[in-house]
Design a protein around this nucleic acid. Structure first.
Length: 581
RNA sequence: GCACCCGUAGCUCAGAUGGAUAGAGCACUUCCCUCCGAAGGAAGAGGUCGUAGGUUCGAAUCCUAUCGGGUGCGCCA
């Protein structure tokens, strides 16, 4: 409905200039409901926005648009306000046809083809396989998965990807930690001091992996030099940890499409290939990175290193791709990985990272630009920390000691749906306070219950209606007359449902999933409001035992509300409840 | 020192592409269950959108400066 209004306004604009609007489309026409209801149901600022482009007086343009709208059968009460806003209403029958639209579309209501089937790679979580997923990863996982759902919904072909950092010092440290526990399993006495080395892992899960190792390989690695076991145990450890991580993700209902391993990328010689591309553009050179001012770096030595000229693509300083011992930096591997993505055909990429990766954005964007000759683009979304509160007190966590809340802990305690809702309902740039007590409360502090409650109430109405009227079918809801739906709140609800496709598209394009739960809350609120109106004003009740036609019309409105709520909940990965318990 | 992010009601937060008198919830005040689920609803009060300039028909939104808070800054991944 909104889209067809846009189209008629845009057609009017186009009649004034054939090519002046070449860069614009009907999508650029704003139609919204004004904050003040006295101003009307809907308004557009198109005359103000396009007056300049068309070199016309805003007021004159507004007159023309208003005339065009007046001719539209769905529109009534067109009015022009200074300096050129156009306010108008829709005839009730137009709102009623929005219900028919929703019922006809069903699950696909809100979908669009803005993505035109373009492939997009959404990389998220990508946690080091050195321990179970923790609470930070939970936000990453939920955020990434909803972005993927949203992009899919607007017509992109999405690949959800996890990058496995199965190389480097952390994996070595994990392997050494496992090896110690493995010896312990086989009877060697291990002292606490043996774990005092660099970044040794102390978590209980290390013992579990060591036991598996001992069960499977016996004393095969015992009394051998590190060089003889490190590769085997690393591989074993990564395999075990990845199984663990996949299990944790599935607790949140998340399945990745692709897991790409750093080792595999290196084996394909991608690092050299990537560097060759960069070198051919003159973006590789030997140089010195200056010491940053104002921070503590006592043992800083200025040494020449191989650098990537990322400043050419907007970075603040050039970045090292080789350590002074000649081995590649992590960044070199990441450059190779992104070349791999590009070669797999992705021109559009999204990467979800924790806020501690702030400094990483510019260099990876630079690399993608350089590697693709400007063809590919990567969006990096950072998310802020989650503070966990127990009885109002923040829970301290330390990963090294193994003392941290795992994703599994959280999900087992409050459930998948609440975890997901908490992680997704705030803007990604805002830190979240996750209070274990509050989130489980069935109260207004916890909007998920409000939304679930609306959904359950609708289902309840249908259950009750079925007791009174026989054989209510979706077909009957579709074909019935809705002309009795005239109440202000009913219209408001229809109006709100009408904007669902817009909401989905805006959330997807902005990569801001939190808009979805906020919208669902608003729809729920209108529904609850309508429900309560029926308590005092009995003619507004959904079920009228003596009037099947009216009941069916109201059920049609409720069904379309249910479709939107269900679709929205599905996008954010939450299971709707048929009844509250 | 530099980069990125945040600053909106007492509290927790929404306000995409600049739009009209800045919105919710919690808390506070007052109402509404003989009634499809009160786990709800209606109304009231609460704001110099950190501050100061600028851009224009119009700024919470864009630009500049500044204050406060967070994150990060070579051979960690």
């Amino acid at each position: 409905m909104i889209q067809s209004l846009r189209n008629s306004i845009f057609a009017c604009l186009k009649s004034f200039s054939r090519d002046g609007l070449a860069e614009y489309s009907a999508e650029d026409v704003l139609i919204d409901s004004p904050g003040d209801v006295n101003l009307g149901e809907l308004y557009t600022n198109a005359a103000l926005v396009f007056a300049k482009t068309l070199k016309m007086n805003p007021r004159a343009l507004a007159n023309n648009i208003a005339a065009a709208l007046t001719k539209n059968d769905n529109v009534s009460n067109v009015d022009i306000a200074d300096p050129g806003f156009i306010n108008f209403k829709l005839k009730p029958c137009a709102w009623h046809s929005t219900i028919d639209e929703i019922l006809a579309s069903g699950d696909t209501y809100g979908s669009s083809n803005k993505g035109r089937g373009e492939v997009v790679n959404v990389e998220f979580v990508s946690a080091n396989p050195t321990g179970p997923l923790h609470t930070g990863h939970a936000r990453n996982a939920v955020f990434g998965s909803v972005i993927a759902n949203l992009l899919e919904k607007i017509g992109y072909k999405v690949t959800k990807e996890f990058y496995i950092n199965d190389q480097g010092n952390q994996i070595k440290a994990l392997s050494r930690s496992i090896y110690l526990r493995y010896r312990e399993c086989l009877g060697t006495k291990i002292n606490k001091s043996d774990f005092s080395g660099n970044d040794m892992y102390l978590g209980e899960y290390v013992k579990g992996i060591a036991k598996n190792l001992a069960d499977l390989y016996g004393d095969e690695f015992l009394n051998k030099k590190e060089s003889e076991w490190i590769t085997s145990i690393s591989q074993f450890a990564v395999k075990k940890m990845m199984d663990n991580i996949k299990g944790d993700l599935s607790l949140l209902g998340i399945n990745m499409d692709v897991y790409t391993s750093e080792t595999a990328v290196c084996k394909k010689n991608m690092v050299n290939e990537a560097l060759a591309i960069l070198a051919s553009e003159g973006d590789i050179y030997d140089g010195i990175i200056p010491k940053p001012k104002g921070i503590d770096a006592k043992d800083w030595e200025e040494k020449p290193q191989t650098l990537f000229r990322s400043t050419k693509y907007g970075d603040d300083i050039d970045r090292a791709i080789r350590k002074s011992d000649g081995t590649w930096t992590y960044f070199a591997g990441d450059i190779a990985y992104h070349l791999d993505k590009i070669q797999r055909g992705f021109k559009k990429m999204v990467n979800v990272l924790g806020a501690d990766h702030t400094g990483y954005i510019k260099r990876i964007k630079a690399a993608v630009k350089a590697l693709s000759g400007g063809e590919a683009n990567i969006d990096i979304r950072l998310y802020q920390l989650v503070n966990f509160l127990e009885n109002g007190e923040q829970v301290r966590m330390s990963k090294r000691s193994g003392n941290f809340i795992t994703l599994r802990d959280v999900v087992e305690r409050v459930g998948k749906d609440i975890t997901r809702f908490m992680m997704i309902s705030r803007h990604h740039d805002v830190t979240i306070d996750f209070d274990f007590k509050k989130v489980a409360e069935h109260s207004m502090d916890n909007p998920i219950f409000y939304i679930q409650y609306a959904y359950a109430r609708i289902s309840s109405v249908f259950r009750n209606a079925a007791k009174i009227f026989e054989n209510i079918s979706v077909e009957e809801l579709k074909t019935s007359s809705k002309s009795c739906l005239q109440d202000e709140t009913e219209i408001d609800l229809m109006k709100s449902l009408c904007f669902w496709p817009e909401q989905v598209a805006s959330a997807a394009i902005a990569l801001e999933p939190h808009r979805i739960p906020h919208y669902l809350y608003k729809v729920s609120s209108l529904f609850h409001s309508l429900w309560n109106k029926g308590k005092t004003n009995t003619i507004l009740r959904f079920i009228d035992e003596k009037d099947r036609a009216t009941t069916i019309a109201r059920l049609a409105l409720l069904e379309s509300t249910r479709i939107v709520l269900k679709d929205g909940l599905k996008l954010i990965g939450i299971t709707p409840l048929e009844e509250m318990k």
